[in-house]
Write a protein that binds this DNA or RNA. Structure first.
Lengths: 230, 230
DNA sequence: TGTATACAGGTTGTATACGATTTCTCCGAT
DNA sequence: ATCGGAGAAATCGTATACAACCTGTATACA
């Protein structure tokens, strides 16, 4: 329980919220790797609270699929399977492309311009902190893009899904340098939207999502990560 | 806190699970109508437990969108808006049609035949218990149909969404007798699937979902329910 | 009369203690 | 040596007590 870095500085409204955010981050960034065992007691000690806020955080993460817990046996970080990656990307493509279509119909020029400011993202190969920063910005961009679709329910589902998928990205990022490949992706998308090319924008997004999936899957397979297929 | 009917007989593994199911049912069936105020204390008394299991149930329902709670102020059942109904149906159509396409590719003949047994659903106008039974069977049919798509993540999202939407159905069912109109809908869908007519099956489902939405919206508007538009 | 402040009531947030359930260990009987 | 059972340890499940926080009300003061 030594270095928790800058996480410490952030002040949260409630302890439960703090534990939730910290634990989620620990899982997503693979500090708690897939398969790791956790108990409410150890987590309480780690975060300096009692078991009550920990329980609440664990329940939320369980519902999001970032943690599994069996009664009287403790919790464990779920393994990452190739099938789950495929399923998540399939669902993401469905949701995000639909959201994009709505966005192109409903978003104002000003909103699109505002989004453009968030489009620039990049990372440095083998720099862990830069990964976290990159993924957070990327997450933000996609969530705000979907928010312009003005369907709260859709947005909520997509936000949870993208949050869960962050873990896949962390696993894949260190296995190859795709920075160049991804440069300008967001800008291209926004440009299509700003010129009213809805179909082109959707094709563009779909292609980007599939490329992302293929990059991750290829990297994982090449590096002989022994992930369960199912 | 008098009659809780047959709910009492059901034995659950944990108190929290029991409260969750009972409270969810109370909200869906409009026993706790939109806008109702609830406190952990009153719910604990109502269900005969302490606040701890109640808290857990409330958190789960909050994440599903069936309850909203503000710190130190209590909980309330969220209002039903026309926009929310539209958003949910839009998302449902997207998810369920996609799931159906996957199902038609992946489900075996035996699985489809098994589903056929669950297809028959009906209800009696103005009979509240028959509403609950009908909606539960209908829910079950759609969830199992989606399960054959073999995408766990998609299934989970759709199950939560349909659960939330049950509340809309209860609100609309008593406002008109649509039993005849809906008779045979499920059977028709299964028949298309069994004969490999994927596109026809999807069109069929899409039509049914939109009809359902229109019935509810029309009934609510005709009856001058003063729902918030946004 | 108007305003600010102190106080009381109610509600959720957290800590602690205890109970229920599972799992493992260890010891004895066969 | 192996099997079975009693008991201990670990872990989650629940109840209770108290703290933190928000809101409305009444009161003191200008």
């Amino acid at each position: 329980m030594a270095e928790r870095g800058r996480l410490e500085a952030v002040e949260r409204r409630t302890a439960a919220e703090g534990v939730y955010l910290a634990l989620k981050r620990d899982i997503i960034t693979l500090r708690h790797p897939p398969g790791a065992s956790l108990t409410e007691h150890s987590l309480a000690a780690r975060h300096g609270t009692s078991r009550v806020p920990v329980r609440e955080a664990c329940r939320r993460l369980q519902q999001e699929g970032l943690l599994v817990g069996r009664p009287y046996k403790g919790y464990s970080v779920p393994p990452i399977s190739l099938k789950e990656i495929g399923d998540c990307f399939d669902l993401r493509e469905l949701l995000e492309c639909h959201a994009l279509e709505l966005t192109s119909r409903r978003a104002s020029a000003a909103e699109l311009a505002g989004l453009k400011a968030l489009a620039a993202v990049a990372y440095t190969f083998h720099d862990w902190d830069s990964y976290a920063d990159f993924l957070e910005r990327n997450f933000d961009f996609h969530v705000r893009l979907a928010a312009l679709a003005r369907n709260e329910r859709l947005l909520g589902v997509l936000r949870d899904l993208l949050g869960t998928m962050q873990r896949f990205f962390f696993l894949g990022l260190d296995l190859g340098d795709f920075g160049a490949e991804m440069r300008g992706e967001h800008e291209e998308l926004i440009a299509h939207l700003q010129h009213g090319r809805t179909a082109a924008a959707i094709d563009c997004l779909r292609g980007q999502i599939r490329s992302s999936r293929d990059r991750i899957l290829r990297a994982l397979i090449d590096q002989r990560f022994d992930l369960p297929l199912e």
